[in-house]
Design a protein around this nucleic acid. Sequence first.
DNA 1: CTGTGCGTTCTGTAGACAAGAACGGGCTGC
DNA 2: GCAGCCCGTTCTTGTCTACAGAACGCACAG
Lengths: 283, 283
Amino acid sequence: MYVNSSHPASRSSVTNRVLRVAAVHTDIVTDTPNYTIDATETSLDLLETLVESAAPMGVTALADRLDVSKSVVHNHLSTLRARGYVVKRDSRYEPSLRPLDIGSRTRATLPVYQAARHHLDNLAAAADETTVLFVLEAQSGVPVYIAEASEGWSPQFHEGERLPLHVNAPGKAILASLSEDRVDDVLDETDLVAPTSATITEPDELKTALRGVRDDAVAFCRGEQYEGIVGVATPVTNDDADTVAALGVCGPVDRLSGRYLEEDITGQVLSTAKSIQVDLTGQ
Amino acid sequence: MYVNSSHPASRSSVTNRVLRVAAVHTDIVTDTPNYTIDATETSLDLLETLVESAAPMGVTALADRLDVSKSVVHNHLSTLRARGYVVKRDSRYEPSLRPLDIGSRTRATLPVYQAARHHLDNLAAAADETTVLFVLEAQSGVPVYIAEASEGWSPQFHEGERLPLHVNAPGKAILASLSEDRVDDVLDETDLVAPTSATITEPDELKTALRGVRDDAVAFCRGEQYEGIVGVATPVTNDDADTVAALGVCGPVDRLSGRYLEEDITGQVLSTAKSIQVDLTGQ
DNA sequence: CTGTGCGTTCTGTAGACAAGAACGGGCTGC
DNA sequence: GCAGCCCGTTCTTGTCTACAGAACGCACAG
């Protein structure tokens, strides 16, 4: 008999939630699958290894790294190359920009992105601070759009990267706009690691903080993810809808602090969020 | 005996080229592979189908579309979901933003992108026209960065999309900065389809045009890819290096025409390219 | 309560995929 | 210039994977 790998109560909690909360009619499923395709995983391992590696890699190096035979690596790379996901330059392999195509098309379908994009550009230009839009994706916060300040600092995260929700301002704003049990779900499945000493690691402490965020519609982050980086964020909800998002500004603490951060910037973030919401629900 | 699938003389041309042109020491290999992994192709088919479909899809719909059994679809989707490439919402599947992560990390490693980005932003803001950076990737032109004009028109292509080189200004600029035989290579493998009536489809005619582009370091495009869309572009070369790129401005013909396009905008494009080149080779 | 349609699980089997050996071309150093 | 090495590719063989199809369970509709 096939031994089912553990999926700890997530199944039952899904049913519970659907029964209890009628408002939330969509639910992200996150149990661990029983049957997976090895070949696909190998291909993805290769692609991801190539992306992580700064320099192009050869077949032998990849085979050593992933602990598979050279022929396997070769065949998988050939497949990925035929599909345009990998480029072969002089018997070295490197990732192509195909994923950027896939990714930007996926992003383009998000209503929040469409509505928020130009507003983010405007806010970034007006305040000359780095402005970000996050969406919720399977227990994580994902920056979908980053409008950078004209000079100086760039954030250390990328568009599309999955970040834990409890360590940054947009993440907290997103958490605050979720239903109580959905928050529990997220907290269950993410271990509240603490990148810096400022990080909140106690679930209860976090929930109290979230209540404050919910009241003010503003979340702050003070060096909880990266040392010396602070931020403000506010949720952008699309009530009839599926995606939960948040808009924020972040930067080094020596640029953002005091009344400038807590009043000036915060005010601009809130009014930008309002404009986005109008665009989003108005038409 | 295994019957080798046709790879029409590209093998021998590679060796020829390496012998003849010492300056070009890197070469993109584009023969068709002999052994490919079916499972990987199925997974990619699924992912791409999900991306192309506007709405989330169910297992049965995907199985029908791709003509495989439901269980196969289910297993592949489980794998993709476990790896974060697909999100399951209420027994419907949709693509995640993981590819955006992969793609933006790949893009971030390109020196041209790093150097050009802010210059593109500046040019787009100064001229208030849509500004693009293209790179060469396996016989195609790929927009790596698009800085849009503040309002109105958006280009119909995406970041990361592979576009034919002969139908747009950046493409022609890239072709013009390649060696003669490399151009032949590209023209061999791309069928010179004509999206509009303005498109050049004769290889010889195109080559003559390219000579002009090489002399002026400027390429124009007048509605050859999309009806009513024109553009200017200039190559951005990184001599010691691997990547060939081009910088351009494009937009609807009623915005860009006459001396405004051919002198004002062209001048700004050229001077921006110069700045980028300085940043790129200077340090 | 029955019927239909869906996602998921399960099982047998055909055949694809992995391993490893062998090939061949390019490079280095003597 | 030749020998040795390294690396990418090809090829073959056996095993175990990944596929098809059936069965299951659940939800919803009539």
